[in-house]
Design a protein around this nucleic acid. Structure first.
Length: 229
DNA sequence: GCGACAG
DNA sequence: ATCTTGTCGC
């Protein structure tokens, strides 16, 4: 896919936290690809099989503006790091990078299942991967990790700012009328407003943006395939 | 000590 | 995230 900056994944939770504090300095929260310049968007997600003790990473490349799937990549790895709120990238990052290496496409944007800068140290998994790949990235989470907000109106497209330490770090977006909103935050090389608009443009008929849905479906398929053999 | 806590 | 069955509704 593209050159990836080497990163020490095999560390302790304490060291992981220190690494995030260094990584945050490299996160750029501004700009963002203009919708008309977007050609390929990558959706990333991970499933976990407890019985087998395996993580299934999936990346699906969709072409814009039709959102057609043009390539898929997947990888399977045993977890080497526990799930710790705030350190998700250390658990899911390796298997996602492994899946990304199997793809030939060079996406213009990464849409990750999780937070971007709406994170205790400003480096959620979307920011982490965005920096390592030097690619614009956005985090789309199904629930809140940090920050304060007011519930947005029920209409599709409604959004309210997500505040952390007096700063707007993301937005709570209603991607479907009357449905629980998602938490959008910039990962890298994109601003809050651009991230919000881009995510809405990727949501057609479901709560989650198409790229993430496609990746989730792929990782689940792999999960099922392994769980039953 | 208590509550919160992406996936 | 996963563990789990059916059920209500478009």
């Amino acid at each position: 896919m593209k050159q990836v900056i080497p990163f020490p994944w095999d560390v302790s939770p304490a060291e992981a936290t220190r690494l995030q504090e260094k990584l945050r300095e490299r996160v750029v929260v501004a700009g963002g690809p203009a919708p008309e310049d977007l050609r390929l968007v990558a959706g990333l997600d991970v499933s976990f099989c407890r019985r087998r003790g395996l993580l299934f990473g999936a990346v699906v490349i969709l072409r814009l503006p039709d959102l057609i799937v043009v390539e898929e990549g997947a990888a399977v790895l045993p977890p080497t790091f526990p799930y710790v709120p705030g350190l998700l990238a250390f658990r899911e990052g390796p298997v996602l990078l492994s899946a990304l290496r199997k793809i030939a496409s060079v996406p213009d944007l990464l849409v990750c299942d999780g937070q971007g800068i709406a994170h205790p140290r400003g480096v959620g998994i979307a920011s982490h991967l965005g920096v390592l790949l030097g690619t614009p990235a956005i985090g789309v989470a199904k629930s809140r990790l940090v920050g304060d907000y007011e519930m947005p109106p029920p209409a599709k497209g409604a959004a309210s700012p997500l505040f952390l330490n007096g700063k707007v770090v993301g937005s709570v977006v209603r991607t479907r009328a009357g449905v629980k909103p998602v938490f959008v935050s910039p990962g890298h090389l994109v601003g809050v407003d651009a991230a919000t608009r881009l995510v809405l443009s990727l949501c057609t008929r479901f709560r989650l943006p198409e790229p993430v849905r496609a990746a989730h479906n792929l990782s689940r398929r792999l999960f099922q395939r392994y769980a039953s053999e």
